[in-house]
């Protein structure tokens, strides 16, 4: 650690600076948000009373519905995006390189485009026949699928690149039909990558605001939209409470999906290293 800074005094000074900057830039905002969610009255520097009323209120009524809408949208959109992304990645490797580059570009493009523009495009397109989806939940899900499929696609591609060489041909030569190879060999080997993509996709979907705010129907307000409308109306503490629940839900979903050392993953890694 000390290969660059040999003076102990300078090391301590820099360590102090690092800590302070980290605390102010990254620690303080998060702490304040949590503090705001449990603040009863906050007219002075620090809240004079603490309460769980906001947090409890956020688990009922419109706010609970918003959290539920976000979770449901996230789950459905993630599953659709995974299927779409993995399917696309598996199919694209059969094409010659120039075509494949085109497919890559298509799948990755939504990441580079401002989410508001994606929302507007979907709103404009699906307000016209033949695909009249404006004002439906389906449009919300479609929007989120467009936004997160890229991550599923790149993860699946990374997994495909790391497939043990010729394992699929081997399965085929043993007499397995292509569909069987896919289900029994390829997909299980891709699973860890898809799992990570699912975690990321779910988190992104649950926090999505820019595109959703363009297309959400009145009956399907998601948590980020709810947080925005609460804070816009001046209900800052209620907004903070919903935010904390949104973060907690996202974090729990992440932990559930992206457990680094799930038994299956360990077994896969072992098999791959030949141990």
């Amino acid at each position: 650690m000390s290969e660059l800074i040999h003076s102990r005094g300078a090391r301590r000074l820099l360590a102090g600076a690092g800590m302070i900057v980290t605390a102010i830039v990254f620690g303080l905002p998060l702490l304040t948000l949590i503090l705001a969610s449990i603040a009863g009255e906050w007219t002075r520097a620090l809240p004079s009373t603490l309460t769980v009323a906001h947090l409890r209120a956020a688990l009922g009524g419109a706010q609970r519905a918003a959290l539920w809408h976000s979770l449901a949208t996230g789950l459905v959109a993630t599953i659709v995006a995974l299927v779409l992304g993995a399917w696309g990645a598996l199919a694209s490797r059969r094409y010659p390189a120039p075509v494949r580059r085109g497919i890559d570009a298509l799948f990755l493009m939504p990441v580079a485009i401002p989410s508001v523009s994606i929302g507007l495009a979907l709103l404009v397109a699906f307000s016209h026949p033949p695909l009249l989806l404006n004002g439906t939940v389906v449009l919300v899900v479609i929007t989120h699928v467009v936004l997160i499929t890229a991550y599923a696609y790149t993860s699946a591609q990374a997994g495909i690149a790391r497939l043990p060489p010729s394992v699929e041909e081997m399965a085929g030569s043993l007499g397995a039909a292509p569909s069987r190879v896919l289900v029994r060999v390829t997909l299980p080997l891709l699973l860890p990558h898809l799992r990570a993509a699912a975690a990321l996709g779910l988190a992104l979907s649950m926090g999505e605001l820019g595109a959703t705010i363009m297309i959400y129907p009145p009956g399907w307000i998601t948590a980020p939209v709810e947080i925005f409308s609460l804070t816009d109306r001046g209900s800052l503490f209620a907004g903070a409470a919903v935010s904390v629940w949104l973060l907690a839900t996202t974090f729990a979903a992440l932990r559930l999906l992206d457990r680094r050392r799930s038994p299956r993953r360990v077994a896969l890694e072992r098999r791959r290293s030949g141990a």
């Binding site: 948000l33 980020p224 800052l236 907004g239």
Partner: peptide, 22 residues
Amino acid sequence: YLAFPSFLVALSLTFLYGNSGL
């Protein structure tokens, strides 16, 4: 970090540096 929504930072900063912030 990539997984968390950006607008929450805006909300947090409101409590910190806003008109009636900390």
